[in-house]
Design a protein around this nucleic acid. Structure first.
Lengths: 143, 143
DNA sequence: TGAAATCCCAGTAATTTACTTGGTATTTAA
DNA sequence: TTAAATACCAAGTAAATTACTGGGATTTCA
């Protein structure tokens, strides 16, 4: 049960933006190079994040991307959901209420899947980009 | 980030075995029909579970499959890991120590991924098939 | 006006997942 | 002792998803 590269790369890339928060727009090629991704692929990820209001862009020369908010206001949950959709381990445990696995609610497996989903949500909704930065710095100090 | 049908179907199918625990071997077609799967596909799932010692088989007429242990001794974690591999959201957060994402340990994203993995593990290792049965009965009572 | 950048859409390559087919081996019951 | 019921095994194929590429349009700054 893996997060796709979309989610992982996207998270790593937006984290780069978080590290540069307040320094104006950062061009794509900058981040792409750092992450070893093609510009066009990263562009797609950023396009998604932008449409979901997590980052904003400045077009034209000297343009680029930046966080739409302080790092402390953007959670890993928002980022992963933007790129990956809901983080449920199965449709029947997801956010779409029109999904109904036909077995009624008592399905024992569904109860398990919902518990998994809830525990994932709890983690990702409680880590902000700022937390990631802080943790990083802390790790660095320990080296 | 979905569990594959392998994991879901397998879990639902072995749960059927748990409901019949103590009643001798249950033939495949029985379970396959109940779950709406082809026998040959379910066979593959059960083959994996058997090799991992979670269920055992009796060959020949009147044969079939049964749990290798009491339902209380078999966890959802064992089942999902048997069918899906480790439940980490990325290789770098998984059990294989030879994987090394080249960025050193301080990688902020890895820290997040490990937290997700740990929280999933905590849930699935603390639910046994017996728990699923109990929960089911409880739900039924509430109807 | 030209270079640096985002924006957008569509296509393709690669990988993984889901499932099927066909045949073998074992055991029981008639 | 044979036919039926079952598990066992390996390989192949179909379908879906994921990952990535390409090309052109638009915007902005120097």
């Amino acid at each position: 049960m893996r997060i796709s590269t979309k989610g992982r790369y996207g998270l790593m890339a937006i984290f780069e933006l978080a590290l540069e928060y307040g320094k104006g727009p950062i061009p794509l090629n900058n981040i792409a190079e750092e992450q070893g991704l093609s510009e066009s692929y990263l562009e797609q990820l950023f396009s998604t994040l932008r449409k979901d209001g997590l980052i904003k862009s400045v077009r034209g020369a000297q343009g680029g991307y930046m966080l739409a908010n302080e790092p402390s206001m953007i959670t890993v949950g928002q980022i992963l959901r933007s790129l990956e959709g809901d983080m449920a381990p199965a449709e029947c445990a997801g956010d779409d209420p029109t999904i109904d696995c036909s077995k009624e609610d008592g399905c024992a497996t569904k109860l398990v899947l919902v518990k998994i989903k809830d525990s994932i949500d709890k983690v990702i909704d409680n880590i902000s980009l700022q937390d990631m930065i802080d943790k990083m710095e802390c790790e660095d100090v320990l080296d």
